[in-house]
Design a protein around this nucleic acid. Structure first.
Lengths: 253, 253
DNA sequence: AAGAAACTCCTTACGATGTATAGTGTTCCC
DNA sequence: GGGAACACTATACATCGTAAGGAGTTTCTT
């Protein structure tokens, strides 16, 4: 039975997200701000992944105890939300605004690069939306392109939904592929592949289409995983852009 | 009956996934099988979500201790992998195979419904692929449709990547929307919305396009969230299908 | 037939986690 | 200058996955 943990959560969190925190009048000065806490947490996440972001680890990163963080961030969950929005500041809006097709492709690539720079972003449970300004700006920048392209209002939810999904999906796949290149993990993959061959000797007959696609993808020269993931990504984006072009044409006729 | 119960995690897990476990010769009979363990874990996950799937909870579901599960599943992580593949058995391949466009839409809907029936599927970290036969069959069934449609081999990775991403993304959004209808959570959302209005009074001016889309979506009658999410989903799928149709035409000319 | 071996399942225990609680010391308002 | 508000620390607790070891059960070997 999940109880509503503290009624003030939402207001407090949103205030932090939108930079509307009133500084207290009395008591010792904050030697740091919540920004520093978030930055430290992001550093830990970038280095060691999201599970390593424990209150103790972040406190240690700041030369402080775990409990002192609660002065700034109310709970770990909230801290992760703040981290999430925070790194979206690194996102730079799309270029090539003249050609909207290129602008969309550019938006997708930049967002994917953000996810690749901070893979833990994709582990943040979006069971409940964060609603921060920096992530909002990412969405807004896409909508600006779609508006200028002349895409009807009613088509935009589908478009944004599709593009966000594809970028996130591709980023996930790409970061897996990237991890596979690590020496340690390469071994893991090899072992896994062999174990699969033993466990499922009839794989090729049972899943002919999957096998065909896999062998096709393996022809990509060195580091085929990464290249394949990359091509799947650009291909998927192109697919959606083509679909959007049809909608735009239909609307402007 | 292949013998190899490999020493490694991977081999053991894959053996379980592909049903190639050798039953031990000595010792007391298993009063249950690993299937029952997985089924019990799935029951817990369906009722209370993935975080509630603790070894103790699953053990309790079976009238057993937590530690006894290690006879069957080596670790919690492996157990979740097995759960993941297991429920993909519920997936029924697409109908309407004659019209490949409808078949794809059907495949997407069915997969989304699976995710909605077991929302915890979307929380399973796909940092490392599961490689089970039941999930593989889901992919294979899509590839069969694409093959029959005449989509060139080199376009299939992009197509599958895009469709999987869209279905997962939409399912995530939909399950959030569904959660919002719950009475408890409705309150949470209302509180959240009000807090946002306070924290970001300039939202509309700052994000005009986002606001326009939101108001547009709100015109959807009762339960606008769900309907909006649903339309975004079908729209996104249609978008991709249109893109695929172009590729198919280009190839068959 | 009987001991050894293999196996299931249990009890206990450990380190790690998020955070409640209580206390110490600092800073500012009246 | 006293008291309220606050930052920060130390300690403690429930819960988690699971390591370790033991008791009881079944089968193989002899």
């Amino acid at each position: 039975m999940t109880e509503l943990i503290g009624q003030g959560d939402a207001a407090r969190t949103l205030a932090l997200l939108w930079g509307k925190v009133a500084t207290p009048k009395r008591g010792p000065r904050h030697s740091i701000g919540s920004d520093e806490v978030i930055a430290a947490a992001v550093r830990v996440a970038d280095r060691q992944g999201l599970p390593a972001v424990t209150m103790r680890a972040v406190g240690n990163e700041l030369g402080r105890t775990a409990m002192s963080l609660y002065t700034y961030v109310l709970s770990r969950e909230v801290m992760v939300d703040l981290m999430y929005d925070s790194v979206h500041a690194e996102f730079a809006g799309p270029r090539n605004v003249k050609d909207w097709r290129k602008a969309i492709a550019n938006w997708c690539t930049r967002l994917r690069d953000l996810y690749l720079a901070h893979p833990w972003l994709l582990e943040v449970s979006s069971a409940r939306p964060v609603l921060g300004p920096k992530e909002q700006e990412v969405l807004e920048s896409l909508l600006r392109v779609l508006a200028k392209a002349g895409l009807p209002l009613e088509d935009r939810p589908a478009a944004t939904s599709a593009l966000f999904s594809v970028v996130r999906g591709a980023a996930k796949q790409a970061s897996e592929a990237r991890a596979a290149v690590t020496e340690e993990d390469a071994e893991w993959w090899a072992e896994r592949a062999q174990a699969l061959a033993v466990a499922a000797p009839d794989f090729a007959e049972r899943f002919p289409e999957s096998t065909a696609m896999a062998t096709q993808q393996r022809k990509g020269g060195p580091q085929p995983w990464i290249r394949a993931a990359d091509q799947a990504f650009t291909g998927a984006v192109a697919l959606i852009v083509d679909g959007l072009a049809q909608r735009v044409e239909a609307a402007t006729e």
